[in-house]
Design a protein around this nucleic acid. Structure first.
Lengths: 220, 220
DNA sequence: TTTATAATTTAGATATATCTAAATTTAAAT
DNA sequence: ATTTAAATTTAGATATATCTAAATTATAAA
């Protein structure tokens, strides 16, 4: 069994996430931006990940994640999201405080630990941001979801996830009263700027700019 | 604030534990043995820990831990033992399975995490091996304890900790029916080999060699 | 199509953490 | 008091993970 360092796991996770956004090949610069490291450091890491065959690396072209790589990335993502559930549900963290800590916890190496944690949390299927938790084998059952901007006037739905999960964005959503699981209805769609007004749980009304709404994912 | 790497924290913890066994200066070889690294690696680490002023390092002579170093070591020990409680009480780990995992978890850097974990566990004062958990400031209230070999014939006590907490030893104790918290009584002391026979909870009787009994710590 | 710009890689540096082999110092034995 | 043995340190090597600066390749613009 090939071993992977925490840094390798983190890079692979980043590559998986960028691939998942639709791009078939991932560029050095994209990874550099995501990982907050310099492109030179990325090149070096890509060479090593290529040698370990979790990515296909062609110099100057970009990388594609292999099946083996996907499996590994999903295992790390599974750990990350299970820890997030633990932090929020058991330790009363708010959903914008969990990222950094989960980024460390996800690298703790113990199969038993993750199995037991999963069991202890009641085999959750989604993390506090609404993202699906892969199973032991890397399978993900994602609910079909679309950005809030795609909802028609008067349509109803449930907020299930956010695209941009930066602390700032999560804080903002919390402040205005939007949260994962909220039942919403589109009350108004402003054509010229793409902004929307929604009601949350048939009570509070919220205005959202196009940019914000595009980052809120809804399940019908 | 000076930063410390996981390796530095581990070495410092080892040095603290060895100092705590009564030795005033700790030798390179002792640390090498405890950390399962070569003496050459230890020398290098001691130089760095010396520069960071958590130990006093005099070449060829050995090291003494400073007050600053003690505080840091106790913080790491606090984290380690809190995680052990979590693993045993919440995730149903047995007390001989927790060491390795806790050795990784103890290096996760988040003050909030440890505060909340402590609270979640009900502010435990002892870990599953019976060792005291230092508070946020590094204060430890240790119960007076002595090796089982020091108990007189017919004396009673309670098993509160073990000296040797290797997985093999803990497994053995579990197997024969000894556990932290067990109420015991010395039924027989064999002079010529130092072995003892004890009763556990006024029921089962157990024979223990001198070597084993010396590693079982008892509170009267 | 040549050229300028952007993206990427290489080369060389630093820092951590480990090792082996050789050198050095301290402690023990004769 | 020498000599020998043990403990310790130094020197030099390897591996990870990062950086800056320079070189290279690919892409976009004129």
């Amino acid at each position: 069994m090939i071993k992977f360092t925490p840094a390798e796991e983190s890079y692979l996770k980043a590559i998986y996430h960028i691939s998942d956004e639709g791009k078939r090949t991932v560029s050095t610069n994209d990874i550099s931006f995501q990982m907050k490291t310099k492109p030179a450091s990325v090149s070096d890491m890509l060479r090593r990940l290529g040698e370990k065959e979790v990515i296909e690396y062609r110099k100057y072209y970009g990388v594609n994640i292999t099946e083996e790589g996907k499996k590994l990335a999903l295992q790390t993502i599974r750990k990350h999201r299970l820890w997030e559930v633990f932090l929020v549900e058991k330790l009363r963290f708010s959903w914008d405080e969990v990222h950094e800590v989960a980024d460390e916890l996800e690298h703790v190496k113990s199969k038993l630990l993750i199995q037991r944690l999963d069991e202890y949390l009641g085999f959750p299927k989604f993390d506090p941001h609404g993202d699906p938790i892969p199973d032991e084998y890397g399978d993900v059952r994602a609910r079909p979801r679309l950005p809030l901007t795609d909802l028609e006037l008067h349509a109803t739905g449930q907020i299930v996830a956010v695209k941009d999960s930066s602390a700032a964005f999560l804080k903002y959503l919390d402040k205005v009263g939007a949260y994962i699981g909220a039942r919403i209805r589109v009350m108004e769609k402003v054509e010229f700027d793409g902004s929307v007004e929604i009601s949350v749980d048939n009570k509070k009304n919220i205005f959202m700019s196009k940019d914000v709404a595009a980052n809120v994912l809804v399940m019908l």
